[in-house]
Design a protein around this nucleic acid. Structure first.
Length: 191
DNA sequence: TGCCCGATTAACT
DNA sequence: GTTAATCGGGCAA
């Protein structure tokens, strides 16, 4: 049985945590799968929500590591982030895609006709499939309804530029599981 | 108060 | 390849 991740897992730099999240299992109310794609956002990064300081929306980012930051994107979708170390640094990892494994029926029901490959391939799709919404902003990641399990084998990780941003576009802070079919987009070249 | 734009997605041509 | 949907944050006035 895989080990549960504790708060200590998130008490490290956002880039370390981002790489180590690839291959871990994320469940929300018992539904989810293996994380295959994430992006790191550091508070000194102009593309990060926290770059201009605390607001009511990003307040959770300025709190302790190991909590979920959920925000509305484009007025339509929800996006899930994990807050990282150090406390108050307002850095977080955006969860962009998981490989659906557990609770497929519940995910399909929420996502309607989507095929399994697109069920959780993208931050908005993932939140819809798992039933994550703004009400879950600020929840701890080491307690229900969240469950996180460490990976049980080594993984090949690829990196590349982040998606959908207009600032700091050159930073290769998107991480993915090499060769996964469940990425929101392909990585152009392995690093 | 008003205006612009975004860590997106699905449905178009 | 393009674009509409849709709304809160951030900034200018």
């Amino acid at each position: 049985m895989a080990k549960s991740l504790s708060q200590a897992f998130f008490r490290r730099s956002v880039h370390e945590v981002a790489r180590d999240l690839i291959g871990t299992t994320l469940l929300f109310k018992g539904v989810g799968g293996r994380i295959v794609e994430v992006e790191a956002y550091h508070h000194t990064d102009p593309a990060a929500h926290s770059f201009r300081g605390p607001t009511s929306r990003n307040a959770v980012m300025f709190g302790p590591p190991g909590y979920a930051y959920v925000y509305r994107s484009y007025g339509i979708h929800w996006c899930l982030n994990f807050v990282c170390e150090p406390e108050g640094s307002a850095s977080a990892v955006l969860i962009r895609a998981i490989e659906p494994e557990t609770g497929l029926a519940a995910m399909r029901r929420r996502r309607r006709l989507a095929d399994q490959r697109l069920l959780c391939a993208g931050p908005g799709r993932l939140c819809e499939a798992l039933g994550i919404a703004g009400a879950h902003n600020g929840l701890a990641l080491d307690a229900p309804p969240f469950e996180l399990f460490a990976r049980t084998a080594a993984v090949e990780i690829v990196a590349g530029p982040r998606i959908g941003i207009t600032k700091a576009v050159d930073k290769p802070w998107r991480y993915g599981l090499e060769g996964s079919r469940f990425l929101s987009r392909r990585f152009s070249s392995p690093i």
